[in-house]
Design a protein around this nucleic acid. Structure first.
Lengths: 260, 260
DNA sequence: CGGGGGTTTGACGAACGTCAATCGGGGTGG
DNA sequence: CCACCCCGATTGACGTTCGTCAAACCCCCG
């Protein structure tokens, strides 16, 4: 499926404008285009419209707020990782959802003061405001772009349900195992043993509703059992079957199923 | 606001067809109409279209599956309480969301195999399939009905975020307090001391990600402290301020905010 | 060669789950 | 009308999981 192993390391601007191969041609928007294509085929014109967003991209450092609480508005994450979160007055933080490179944010978030969530960068990121992007919505045949974006939102919803189960009904080990498998699938590395997962243990703990210390112990436990390893931002699934067994629950599908 | 104290006890069919007062005129659809009106004003024609659904209503007993996993399709809950849930192979259950009388279900659920959730009745219920209801979507000015339904979905989304915080970052006492306040607001009984909450402790435990035993202890603790009481399906908020303090987090707004 | 943030570990305690038994109330059938 | 019964609520005892505090440790960068 989609290979993002390298995409996350793309941090250079300029160059790679119109050299040759498809990936090179896609330039910095490659991550986004490949991910969208995972949901629905885009027409050449649509892909071009997406590519044209590239000059508007901006960088942000880890920890930066990409979208303040209550704000919305179509963005894409070109590289790096972000999250949707909320911080309580006493400092406790819950991360609702991790945003992987190539994914969008701000599309689903209701702007009318309803959902109090903030989008924040977990690593250094590049992102673009896609407010200007023409989608081609409504009426008879939704465009490929519209279908892809819809698919992205649906998958996000599905993942949130999984996440609620994780938080409410899975043990710490199960939560970690399930989260790792979700990320593996999500990053398109189902066959690969290793994939990038540059999240702080603190961030991961705030995703999974655990303390950093306890998460660390669970990670060591999985490492000692040769199931899974996380070192320097790279995840390694050493024993997929055993890890899946530990996860109890199969992660949400990464692709749209045919309507019934 | 909306008073559902009696609505939940409406179990009789027939009668109350066109006697007099507004509530009586709304008949069995009154709960739904009042709730929709809480989000956006409906035109007389729209209200009539909703009322016309009444004959199609059906009953189900507690525990019945109202919408199987993966299915969707516009429904309203006329009376009784239901929930969206998922049950793991080993029997663990997580309830994603409680559905109060008058609320809709199946509107947001994606039908294409994405979200694996089941809608199940928590008490005896009456509900209708509203697939035939003409909404008046799209284009320039969305109808009152469309806006009301959209508001319902937005509120549901907002509540899910709160729910994720509850599960991931609040203690048992905080979870219960927050849940109770959310329900109070949701049922339109913010001023009232008492309101109907006919959930089994087992159901509430599965909402809050707790064991029944521990939930029971928390409830006793709140009762001993004269903060909150739950007896025979009726909730009594004895000390609103203290309960709100115990909840840490203010529950999601019950009404649509003006767009910014 | 120092910071400094992230990771790792130990010791301890609090929060929560499990097992098991009892209680209570309302619904049902005689 | 009453006895029975069953499901849900309640309680005690105990064990486990997980959080907190505190102290190293490690690695990356400057």
């Amino acid at each position: 499926m989609v290979d993002l192993t390298s995409a996350i390391h793309v941090q250079r601007f300029g160059g790679s404008g119109s050299s040759g191969g498809a990936a090179a041609h896609d330039g910095v928007m490659g991550t986004v285009l490949r991910r969208l294509a995972g949901f629905a085929e885009l027409s050449a014109a649509e892909a071009d419209r997406v590519r044209e967003l590239a000059p508007a991209r901006r960088r942000a450092r880890a920890g930066a707020v990409l979208l303040a609480e209550g704000r919305a508005g179509r963005h894409f994450l070109l590289s790096g990782w972000a999250c949707r979160q909320r911080v309580l007055r006493d400092g406790r933080r819950q991360i609702f959802d991790v945003i992987a490179p190539g994914e969008g944010f701000g599309w689903g978030e209701p702007a009318d003061g309803y959902a109090r969530q903030t989008v924040a960068a977990l690593t250094p990121v590049e992102c673009v405001d896609a407010a200007a992007l023409i989608i081609g919505q409504g009426d008879a045949a939704p465009s490929g772009l519209a279908r892809a974006l819809r698919g992205m939102l649906l998958e996000q919803d599905a993942r949130r349900l999984d996440h609620m189960i994780r938080l409410g009904r899975l043990t710490a080990v199960e939560r970690v195992a399930h989260f790792v498998l979700e990320m593996q699938r999500r990053v398109g590395a189902v066959e690969a043993r290793c994939f990038p997962l540059p999240l702080t243990q603190e961030a991961m703990a705030d995703v999974l509703g655990l303390s950093v210390v306890h998460l660390n112990r669970v990670l060591r436990q999985l490492r000692d059992a040769d199931l899974f390893e996380l070192r320097r931002g790279t995840a390694a699934v050493l024993d997929p079957e055993a890890l899946a067994a530990a996860a109890v629950l199969a992660p949400a599908a990464g692709r749209m199923q045919p309507a019934r």
